[in-house]
């Protein structure tokens, strides 16, 4: 009786998941596969599943007059630095916010995360004016600051949640063992925070890596990132599908792998066994 009752919802769940999976995977698979197809069959009326793969789009991306290298380096540098700052500050602020005992703590925490909730479109013009005034347009620092304005509150909020999950007993035990607050943080808290730090870092990195709107508005010739490069391939005269798909693959693949990593870390309960 019981199994037959659960049978229907289970099929339903599987069907839904399959649909979702197809919905997500088909375009990505198509993009990745097509990026290895010669130009003439990319746009063939009936999609070809069997073909001789070619790296021509990738090589031309990195060799032609307008090489992708500077864009890639810009993206890596800007996303990397803004992530590093967000994680370091977010870790310290999150620890403080999690451990401090003050009235109205939830309101403070909510105010911080609420700054992350503003739509990008709403802040882009004020930021533009601000950056122009501060000479931050077309600088790496400008984009780093722009990404921080979204990533820092998010990092603080996420790290606070991770610290909240870490039993206070461990730090107290360390302090009774003779540790100062800083030593307790360094030897006990920080090693246990690896999943939190990695998760936060990857999510922050993805935000900066994927961003188009900020980069489009604030970057100049010397600071353009990969999404801008991709957009430049959509020209008046035509669309270079091969290169576009190759760029898309370059943008998506690292993030997809990182996403899988986040899942692994999120699921892992490193504190298991510390506290019953």
């Amino acid at each position: 009786m019981k199994t037959s009752k659960r049978w229907l919802p289970l099929t339903f769940k599987i069907a839904l998941l399959t649909l979702l999976l197809l919905w997500t995977l088909i375009p990505i698979t198509w993009m990745v596969l097509s990026s290895f197809k010669p130009n003439d069959i990319i746009t063939a009326g009936t999609p070809r599943v069997f073909f001789t793969p070619t790296l021509e789009h990738y090589t031309s991306l990195f060799s032609s007059g307008n090489s992708l290298w500077p864009y890639l380096l810009n993206s890596l540098f800007i996303a990397g630095v803004s992530t590093l700052i967000a994680v370091v500050l977010g870790c310290m602020a999150g620890f403080g916010l999690s451990r401090i005992r003050i009235k109205g703590k939830q309101h403070l925490a909510f105010w911080i995360i609420s700054t992350r909730m503003a739509p990008i479109a709403a802040v882009i013009v004020p930021l533009y004016l601000l950056f122009r005034y501060l000479y931050l347009l077309d600088t790496h620092a400008g984009l780093i600051v722009a990404y921080l304005s979204f990533n820092l509150p998010f990092a603080i909020w996420l790290m606070t949640a991770f610290f909240d999950d870490l039993p206070l007993d461990l730090e107290e035990a360390a302090m009774i063992d003779g540790a100062t607050k800083l030593q307790a943080f360094r030897y006990v808290v920080l090693p246990l925070m690896t999943p939190g730090l990695v998760t936060t870092a990857i999510l922050c990195f993805i935000f900066a890596w994927n961003d188009y709107a900020f980069a489009q508005t604030f970057s100049g010739p010397s600071t353009q990132t990969i999404p801008i490069a991709a957009a430049q391939l959509l020209t008046q005269t035509g669309i270079d599908w091969g290169k576009l798909l190759a760029i898309g693959t370059i943008v998506v693949c690292p993030m997809a792998i990182a996403g899988l990593l986040v899942k692994r870390w999120l699921v892992q309960g490193l504190t298991l066994g510390a506290v019953k």
Partner: peptide, 20 residues
């Protein structure tokens, strides 16, 4: 005097062993 300098030891209900 801070907990580190009181020279006491405490066993917690949760044991509070350092998991790493």
């Amino acid at each position: 005097v801070g907990p580190a300098d009181r020279g006491l030891a405490m066993v917690f209900q949760s044991y509070a062993l350092y998991p790493h």
